[in-house]
Every structure is written in structure tokens, then in C-alpha cells.
């Protein structure tokens, strides 16, 4: 089982490498991610970037923005490029294909996210360090990687379901792009503008714990919710990703 999953991951990473690192558009995409999340935003936020839990929100945003494109290419792309049927005619079990593809995307995006946040320490310390070493709060260091992993998994599971129904890679990527935009940008912006209208005292009570308090318990609750959501969505993906469902009723 593990051997089959790792074989699938090996192929997915080979393709990801070709797509992301060996192509100009892939490299530019990665550079933009690093510049925005690893330089511009940390420098603008200043010491708050590491002293508060504000970076957690971005730790969540990167997986949401990156996973959709990759998972759509992996699942809908396999069908669009006519490689799926041959893959299904091999001895790999359905769940090994499914898990291998999901883990490959999640692993890649998780790694990029962690690298961005380690890299962000460099400009923050150069611009705002003033001789002392600025580092993330312990609960952020503990919950950030877990949250980014779970969110990447959540987006992957959603991506699998969308991709299996989509007519093409483009259609799947558009649907997932809109979802990512809504969850990673539109909703947070709506909350920020909503808070501007709320009484100042209420806002302080809400925002202060994020800036100064311990967000560990809240992150734990969110993590548990994400685990439950992932289990539910993965069950649905597994039910859908079966040879006799996938093939070939034309």
C-alpha cells in the first residue's frame, strides 16, 4: 500500500518539477509567491509579523491559492491528456492513485509554504530586527505547519471532487480559483471591512487576543474541524474515484 502510494507520488513530483521548476511560468509563479508572502507582506507588517499571530492567516492562504491549480492539473489533466485509462489499466489500486496524487500536491504546497515563512524571517530581521533576532511565537510555530497541511489537504479533497466533475483542466482550475479567491481574499476582506463598522471596543476585544494572546487553543479547535472536514471529503473522493465510476461511458 505505502509502496504503491510512494510510486504515484514519485511520478507526480516528477511532473510537478517539470511544470513548476523547469518552466518559465512555473518559476515566475513561485517567485511571485515568495516575493509577496516572503518579502512584501512581512516587511509591511514589521515586527507584528512575528510577534502576533497575524501570519497564521497567511500560513493558511498560501495552500488555498496554490493547491487548486496543481490538483486540477493532476486529476482533470490526467483525463484530458489521455493518460488516466492506461494508469487505471495498471495494477495500482484506486486508493493508492488517489492518495498518491493528494499527498504529492499537499506535500509540495506544504513545503513551499514552510520555506516562504522561513524565508520571511530574513527581511523582517533585516528591516525591523534592530540587532535582535525576531522569530515567530511558539504557538504559531506549532500550529502554522499543521494548519497549512490541513488546509492544503482540504483544498486537495475539494479539488479532487471538482476535477472529477469538470470537463477540462481549465474549467476545474477556474472553479477552484474562484473558491480560493472567495475563501482566501473575499471573505477576509469582508470581515476586515465589517470590523471597521463595528464598535471600536468590540473590535479591540476581538483583535487583541490575535495580536497578543495565545491562539493555540483556537488553532487546535480549527485543526480538529479541518480534520473532520478532510475525513468527510476524502470519503466522498474515494467513493467517486473508482475505476468503474471513472471510466468510460461514452
Amino acid at each position: 500500500m505505502l509502496a504503491d502510494i510512494s510510486v504515484m507520488m514519485w511520478k507526480e513530483w516528477k511532473e510537478l518539477w517539470q511544470m513548476q521548476v523547469s518552466s518559465r511560468s512555473g518559476v515566475i509563479g513561485l517567485l511571485i509567491t515568495f516575493v509577496i508572502f516572503g518579502i512584501v507582506m512581512p516587511v509591511q507588517a514589521g515586527a507584528t509579523w512575528v510577534e502576533s499571530a497575524i501570519s497564521l492567516s497567511l500560513w493558511a492562504a498560501i495552500p488555498m491559492l496554490l493547491v487548486g491549480t496543481l490538483v486540477a492539473d493532476s486529476f482533470a489533466g490526467e483525463r484530458e491528456r489521455h493518460t488516466l485509462e492506461t494508469l487505471l489499466s495498471s495494477r495500482l489500486p484506486d486508493h493508492a492513485i488517489l492518495l498518491g496524487k493528494i499527498f504529492a500536491v499537499v506535500g509540495y504546497v506544504w513545503l513551499v509554504t514552510q520555506l516562504v515563512f522561513v524565508a520571511a524571517l530574513v527581511p523582517v530581521n533585516i528591516v525591523h530586527g534592530h540587532g535582535s533576532f525576531l522569530f515567530y511565537r511558539p504557538e504559531v510555530v506549532l500550529s502554522g505547519p499543521a494548519l497549512s497541511f490541513l488546509l492544503a489537504a482540504l483544498m486537495s479533497n475539494v479539488g479532487v471532487l471538482v476535477s472529477l466533475r469538470a470537463g477540462s483542466v481549465k474549467q476545474a482550475q477556474q472553479t477552484l480559483g474562484i473558491s480560493a479567491f472567495v475563501f482566501a481574499y473575499a471573505i477576509p476582506m469582508a470581515v476586515i471591512y465589517g470590523l471597521r463598522l463595528a464598535p471600536k471596543e468590540f473590535v479591540n476585544r476581538l483583535v487583541q487576543p490575535i495580536l497578543t494572546g495565545n491562539v493555540g487553543p483556537a488553532a487546535l479547535v480549527v485543526s480538529i474541524l479541518l480534520v473532520i472536514l478532510n475525513v468527510v471529503l476524502f470519503s466522498a473522493s474515494r467513493k467517486r474515484f473508482r475505476r468503474d465510476h471513472l471510466s468510460f461511458n461514452e
Binding site: 516528477k14 511544470m19 493518460t83 485509462e85 492506461t86
Partner: peptide
């Protein structure tokens, strides 16, 4: 079916090759 796929090879309608590899 798993045993069949283990002992059989197939070239189907399309080559099924990964063009990026």
C-alpha cells in the same frame, strides 16, 4: 481484476504516456 492487470500489459486507444516526462 487486480490480478489480471498485474499480469497483463496494455496499449489502449491513446498511448497514455506522460508528455512532460
Amino acid at each position: 481484476a487486480g490480478q489480471i492487470r498485474k499480469h497483463a500489459g496494455a496499449l489502449l486507444e491513446h498511448t497514455g504516456l506522460y508528455e512532460r516526462l
